[in-house]
Simulated assay, not measured.
Amino acid sequence: MGAYIPVFTVRDVRESETDSQCSPDLAPVISEAPVSARQVHLPQLFHNPKIFIFAFAIALYSVLLVVLTYLFVRSPTAAQNHDRNNILWQTLLSSTRTTYIVPPDAGFNLIEDLTHHPVSLANYIQGNYAQAPLSQFDGHSAEDLRTHEFTDFVDMQILTSLMRLSEYNSQRLLLRFPRDLRLDDLRNSNAVILGSVCSNPWASLADSNTNFHIVCSEDMLSSSIVNRSPLPGEQPIYVSEWNQPTHTTYALIRLVPNLSGDGHLLLLEGLDIAGTQAAAEALLHSAAIDKVLQHARRHDGSLSSFEILLRATSIESNATGAEIIATRIH
């Protein structure tokens, strides 16, 4: 009984030989041979420079993104700064007590400017400013100025920024116009008071317990920051040349106890609208504030009262280049 023995031989094929040079008889065998998708497309990828560069860039970007994310998350400084900012906003916005946001009274400030006479908090609460003669206006316009609740756009931007904070609690935060605020509101509640005493008389509540405070001139033509106890290198008074299109302006950030001592009042005050804007920008976005908050933080995690004096440049009533020039921690 016969048998067949298979014999295998190696065919000599030159390296330069291409598929087009193969024998026509072999073409069907080559085309029908099972080949994976990777074997077909991978050579095409690496032989196309544009596709290769694009793929390499995507891969490099992905690696960098992962590395940077890891470094940021692992960075102790980033975590500490985040914690320090959180303690301020957690204290003011997400505590169990109510927090009032109190914007400036622009109409009241205009009445002061027109009458060239500043009004104290006591007279403001009593509404005496509404009796001031406004001969510059007709009766209807004067009545609007006395009774309507006007504020400025910059402080509404600040309010919007506060509402974007993760600590913002809509159930605990109330917007209250200064004419509607009462002393009892500030006994057991927190408050964020925007604007200086010249446009928001409630800011004067902090003056008796702080080193820095804003004073309006008797004719309402200027205002200044008084430094009760200047340290070496500090000035006793800081004045803004507000009537120049570009000028240096100053601002205060003050955190003080509320009227009962169990809550906090945060005041953002400028010698002009650009100053108030500089105070808010520094508090919300500047890393320089982190050092102050770090020193103000007690061992139990709560915050001591503090004061921050800022200098900025006002360009057409827009603040830029805010910097801290003095601090106090109580």
Rank of each mutant, 00 (worst) to 15 (best):
R146G: 09
I158F: 06
Y124W: 10
D144H: 15
L175Q: 02
D138R: 14
N128T: 05
I158T: 11
F108H: 01
L121Q: 05
M156N: 10
Q171T: 04
P178A: 07
L174Y: 02
N200K: 06
D152R: 07
G195P: 12
L174V: 14
E112S: 11
Q157N: 12
L114S: 01
C198L: 10
F150L: 08
D184I: 03
E143G: 13
F177P: 06
M156K: 08
A122M: 07
V119F: 05
I158E: 02
Q136D: 07
D155V: 10
E112T: 12
N109G: 12
D144Q: 15
R187Y: 09
A130S: 03
Y124A: 10
L114W: 02
I158C: 06
V192A: 10
D138W: 14
A191S: 09
F177T: 06
L121S: 07
M156C: 11
F108I: 02
D144G: 14
Q136I: 13
S161T: 12
S166L: 07
D113M: 05
Q131Y: 01
T115D: 03
R164I: 03
L165C: 05
S141M: 15
Y124E: 09
D185W: 02
T160H: 11
N109W: 03
R176Y: 02
S166C: 02
P133G: 00
A132Y: 05
Q136H: 09
L110V: 11
S166G: 10
L145S: 12
Q126A: 12
P133L: 00
N128Q: 01
P133Y: 00
F137Y: 15
I125A: 06
L173A: 04
H148A: 12
F137N: 13
